[in-house]
Design a binder for these strands. Structure first.
Lengths: 150, 150
DNA sequence: GAACGATATATGTACATACATGTATATTAA
DNA sequence: TTAATATACATGTATGTACATATATCGTTC
């Protein structure tokens, strides 16, 4: 499905205006496909990202602030995502002894197992999600980064 | 802020993998900037989009299904967005006489006024949001559309 | 070391998405 | 024409974002 079909709109003021809508549309499509794959593991994209960040630092725990700082969506409410992950026993929480204000989070063995299975599923779907050559993907990345400069 | 700074990640498996994260990151940044501008008009991006769609068909009303079909985010819950717009008297709802299952929505004069003011504000911020030439924006659009093909 | 301001996290509320289910109306089939 | 099915919308629940505020702890200053 193309952007125009999706929004039933053909009148963009200019290419830059179209880029704004296009980036949001493409992001939505990609995120939907990611969500579908993760649903098989009962994970939301946000929960998956928190697990991924925690695995990156395992076996060392990370504090909530550190996790929030690595998420794309900066206003994600890490304590509440953590609530759900803890209920599923995918992470453990503890109070830092160095700074008792900090809540440390650590991925559990069950969390690592689930994350690895989900990651593998996502990886094998990547070809379906991005129909671009490496060369074109590199150009796309360049343009996306340029887009946000001021 | 670049993608790598934002996510504190430098290890993408390949350019296509990076494109996935990059599209979501750029979309989030753009949507945040749009939200900021719209906040001055007490509108969320979703409310703005519904108003924009209704203005496109004004003075003819549209049914809920039709509006939902034109939104990027397909699972948006139009009745609830409509609730909020109606509270602010920006839209009117009525039952269709042709098919009493349908709820017709129509933008009010107040809705048109607010939409036009907000649109103008967004337009004048567009240069801040998209730091691309028209030529590069056209290439970006081409690549984004190619990305989703199967 | 007590008071003050800063910081880390938690929590409350409004809005939104994702999806299941309920309800009214329309359409189709028997 | 009635019964079954489909459609359009509304509503309930779980999850998440955005943002304001509360609470505990830390660091600093007097």
């Amino acid at each position: 499905m193309t952007l125009e079909e999706a929004t039933k709109t053909s009148g963009f003021k200019n290419q830059r205006h179209k880029s704004i809508v296009n980036v949001m549309f493409t992001s939505y499509q990609v995120k939907s496909r990611v969500s579908q794959v993760l649903k098989g593991y009962a994970l939301t994209p946000e929960q998956f990202n928190v697990l991924r960040i925690l695995k990156g630092s395992a076996p060392n725990p990370l504090c909530v602030k550190e996790i929030a700082g690595r998420l794309i969506e900066r206003n994600s409410n890490v304590p509440r995502i953590a609530d759900r992950l803890e209920l599923k026993k995918l992470v453990k929480r503890s109070v830092s002894t160095e700074d008792r204000r900090e809540t440390l989070m650590q991925i559990t063995a069950a969390g690592i197992n689930l994350l690895e299975a989900a990651s593998q599923a996502l990886e094998s779907e990547q070809n379906l999600m991005v129909a671009l050559s490496e060369e074109k993907a590199a150009i796309l990345n360049q343009l996306l980064e340029e887009m946000l400069q001021e």
